[in-house]
């Protein structure tokens, strides 16, 4: 019985330890494997948050679970696709986009099998996408530009991880996938990029979405965190430090730096100046964040991702970025 008592004590202690660790309160930010998010790792490794006096903890997730944790209020902010943040908001976890991280510029793509030369050839064919996610959205944009609509193709709901095999099986005419899965799909012989996020710049945005309560309580800290993100982007852009930046980011996802560098052009990182302009509605040749959210809200309603329209103005919050020096 002694042993049992000891085990019970240990369990109670460990549970207590777990709960106290929740109460000691650094800000928590979730991030995952996408270049625009992994850029934060530069600041983590360089100790920039400590230097700025911000008590923040970066938690590495799989992308899906990071949204779960954010929706459950267990992390204060998440690096997230803007349209997914609207989805989380519709489900009761609204957020404020205090920093624009990047938009996808080629990393998301629709890949066709041999014999499919353009989006037009998809008419009457089967296309595999994961319903409700950004590739589905991208496909519809591609179809629209080719003068087609969703009803002209048969959609097959497939997990994005399985896209390379799905395309290789020849059972569908095209698949939609993001980096790094899209690259694998392209290795299938004769396969071809039909439409990518580089053809629809600014359709797929990534943002730092912050819990509104935390933002209100820790405004100064969030402002510093946003500033540090743009500092990371500057560090990545500067030819003198670019190699070091890539080395850190590649190491985080256990890739070789030279392989990782090849895929970086698919992500359009936002410098502070670009982010400021974007918040004011000017994204250069790309669609700005606000307009992109209007489109994605329409898409989400039409495809029953959620049922109540989400207003972009409730989410896009430029005050912090615009106030940065």
């Amino acid at each position: 019985m002694h042993l049992i008592r000891r085990i019970i004590c240990l369990t109670a202690l460990s549970l207590a330890a777990v709960t106290t660790s929740l109460h000691a309160a650094p800000l928590k930010v979730g991030y995952s494997d996408w270049p625009g998010y992994t850029a934060f790792e530069i600041a983590v490794q360089k100790g920039w948050f400590k230097d700025a006096g911000v008590d923040v903890e970066f938690d590495w997730f799989d992308y899906g679970p990071s949204i779960d944790a954010f929706s459950a209020g267990k992390i204060d902010a998440d690096c997230i696709v803007a349209s997914d943040a609207l989805g989380a908001g519709a489900a009761g976890s609204p957020s404020k986009f205090i920093a624009i991280l990047d938009y996808s510029e080629g990393s998301d793509m629709i890949v066709g099998k041999p014999g499919i030369a353009s989006i037009k050839d998809l008419k009457g064919q089967k296309v595999a996408v994961e319903f409700g996610l950004v590739e589905h959205f991208l496909l519809l944009e591609g179809l629209k530009r080719a003068g087609l609509s969703q009803s002209d193709v048969t959609l097959v709901n497939t997990p994005t991880n399985n896209m390379p095999q799905t395309l290789a099986s020849g059972q569908v005419a095209a698949v939609g996938a993001w980096y790094p899965i899209s690259g694998q799909a392209l290795q299938s012989p004769g396969s071809k990029r039909l439409f990518t996020s580089a053809d629809a710049k600014g359709l797929i945005y990534d943002v730092l979405a912050v819990n509104p309560a935390s933002l209100a309580a820790h405004h100064a800290e969030w402002s510093k965190i946003a500033a540090i993100y743009y500092k990371c982007v500057a560090y990545l852009a500067d030819p003198a430090t670019r190699d070091d930046a890539i080395k850190i980011m590649a190491a985080k996802v256990q890739q070789k730096p030279e392989d990782y560098a090849k895929n970086l052009p698919g992500t359009h990182f936002h410098t502070l100046a670009e982010a400021k302009a974007n918040y004011k509605g000017d994204a250069g040749k790309a669609m700005n964040l606000h307009d992109s959210l209007v489109l994605s809200d329409k898409f989400s309603l039409e495809n029953a991702v959620y049922k109540v329209s989400q207003k972009p103005d409730d989410y896009v919050s430029g005050a912090i970025t615009l106030a940065l020096p």
């Binding site: 777990v18 929740l22 679970p65 779960d68 944790a69 929706s71 459950a72 267990k74």
Partner: peptide, 11 residues
């Protein structure tokens, strides 16, 4: 999974 995170946190 999601329920456990909501109740017990992320660690």
């Amino acid at each position: 999974g999601a329920l456990c995170v909501a109740i017990l946190g992320i660690d």
